[in-house]
Design a protein around this nucleic acid. Structure first.
Lengths: 212, 212, 212, 212
DNA sequence: ACGTAAGCGAGACGGTACGTCGAGTCTTGGT
DNA sequence: ACCAAGACTCGACGTACCGTCTCGCTTACGT
């Protein structure tokens, strides 16, 4: 999401002038994340503090990101673990894998991102961009899994994938965000959620049982 | 959550001096909410702007709330509609009613609150307080409904109420927060979620049927 | 030259709100002058340094002066000694008194002002204002003395007061500005200049002698 | 005052490598002067602006001048017209010629220089250098003229050349620096000053006339 | 003809200071 | 004891230049 050093269609040639320092870029991201956890929140992240900790001029930060929010987003995006590889056999197992990836339990910093981009924020433009690059790809994968389940009969044929997605992803994130900073999600919470959702809450589960 | 005009054991008598202006208090809350929606975000809410718009001195605000966050929480708490009265007959209907109340669809401002208090925030202390006063009471009601359902056989006996709560509340809020500012939740989303959750996602719903 | 706390025709009543701190104002001016001499130049005067040394917020400075230059001018204007009282008997003695006042020898800081406001500067507006408040009044006094001399016969009747002013004031300031920072004007330089100017440089002094 | 491309005793041979571009040097000086007048002040002269306007890299400037001040001095030194050729007959005429040269009326940019180097400045070192190369040579010429006048009887024998110099040069520069940017010195101001100074201000001019 | 040494435009680098904004506190006179 | 107004200190914001440092390229000589 950082400002790209544009080439303007001039072909593959390097742009003129001194190239940007990769070292600086890394140091800035690192410093940002450090401050996020150390200061326990977005409020503690100051461009000036980031610059100082990364031993970098403020200019060098602003050359890459237009403002503080954008920097934080980018920093958090690097935290968001990769989309997990799915076994592709059992739909249930794939859903559990995805649910687990919502919150890689080892990194509590990730949660911040959800506080910054919910609905109304200071920078709706960036929120949109964040959704594009981080949220949507994951949703797409889950949607595919759900469709596969519907197609191969593992899931009900009349299931609305959007509702199902909201249920699984929503349950995990909601639970994650109600944790204290020191707590952590129970190891098997993703499993529980997926199993419970698959089975259904009601004792009857009528429709599918009342089949002929 | 506002600072109460303390009595400190001085008996039941009115505190001395001029009483606080109710008019000012209302104007402040109103101004805060106006700014929240008008500026489309927490960032646009400035104590100075609130004071100006409410035609009130900054002092008058700080006399009542210790800081900006507290004011915003309080303002949002007034938005959060009351806990709905439940018919108490069908567990399914009660759950739908609660799910609907998560997001009184007429007021998009409500969403902000979830952005402010997720996990790591600037003021964990206030987040905790917010949870106490706003979130927990609602959870308690839902938990009661779920327990009732388990007890009377409408829901599976082995259901974990926490997981169920995460599923229903999570699905609705997750969906709400992925809306554009102008969109709104589909009228019957809460119904869909509850019905889907009750029924289960899987086609088999085996476990409960295969009981001896 | 500072920004006045305007009353806008509201009569003699005090403006509302907390009044500006005289203590702060004095401290700011003092700090500015200290830095001017200590750092030996305008370049060493930083708003941030002034604020720090005066134990004052930057805002408090900017509330009173629109920018750095204006502050420095005002600070220097306080240095510029008052217009001396003139005996009013001998024109020669009055001119010497005025010439001496151009540069109150005890204060080398004064010179800076001339470096800031000569002709072309960053802030022509302020330069004009400075001329109005500081330079013109002094010129007026000297002009009056010269006119008196022309009228009462002490000076030539065909003398152009502007030229005479340029000669006397110019000679002193030029000499002053070519001093090293540690040097000082010779005690009696003003006397020498006035006497030399009165007498004339030429040995003949013809015109006035060759009169009939 | 520019940094010379040093030879270090290697004889008369050209230094190796690509020689410096004269075109760049000229463009830099031109750009500097343009900015000086266009922005009406030293403050508007930015190395970056100069580089941009001269279509030159900043490096190319810094290779030649150690800093901004030095560049400006050098630029202004090119403006300062050459020391005029003096007829050498009438002392009065020579003084007028020199007085005129103080401010070649066609170029208002020249004045700036006096604003930069008066007494206390940012770079006393450079001010000294400027005096050495620009001011002193002119003073020397004027001093010689004055001495010649004293010797050949055109000027009073007891005249102090320093005082006389201050009077003539001071009068012209003082008058010049009190001009608006659009005004210009009256054509014959130098003449007036010299004549007035020679004649003396006083009506009596006694001393030289009352000689035996 | 070709290598080598220095110049060139461009632009990123670490800094310092700018002038602005807002937070939360303090101080007036008036209700 | 309250109120509005507005000044107070403090600290971060995002911008502009400074003077330095690479980049890849372009001269011009001395082999």
């Amino acid at each position: 999401m950082a400002i790209e050093q544009t080439l303007l269609g001039s072909g593959p040639g390097r742009p003129p002038g001194r190239p940007r320092s990769e070292r600086a870029e890394r140091a800035i991201i690192e410093a940002t994340l450090d401050l996020l956890i150390q200061e326990a929140g977005v409020a503690g992240v100051t461009i000036e503090a980031v610059a100082a900790r990364a031993a970098v001029g403020k200019t060098t930060i602003y050359r890459r990101w237009p403002n503080k929010e954008a920097l934080i987003i980018d920093a958090l995006a690097t935290l968001k673990g990769p989309i997990p590889d799915l076994a592709g056999e059992s739909v249930r197992d794939d859903l559990v894998a995805l649910a687990r990836a919502v919150r890689p339990s080892q990194d509590p910093r990730l949660d911040c991102v959800w506080n910054i981009f919910g609905g109304a924020t200071k920078h709706p433009h960036l929120a949109r961009q964040f959704k594009q690059t981080v949220v949507l790809p994951r949703q797409e994968v889950m949607r595919a899994v759900l469709r596969r389940g519907i197609a191969n009969g593992e899931l009900r044929p009349d299931l609305d994938p959007e509702v199902a997605m909201a249920i699984i992803a929503g349950a995990v994130t909601m639970r994650a965000r109600s944790l204290s900073p020191d707590e952590d999600l129970p190891e098997d919470f993703a499993d529980q959620v997926v199993d419970t959702a698959l089975r259904g809450l009601s004792s009857g589960s009528a429709p599918s049982c009342t089949g002929p």
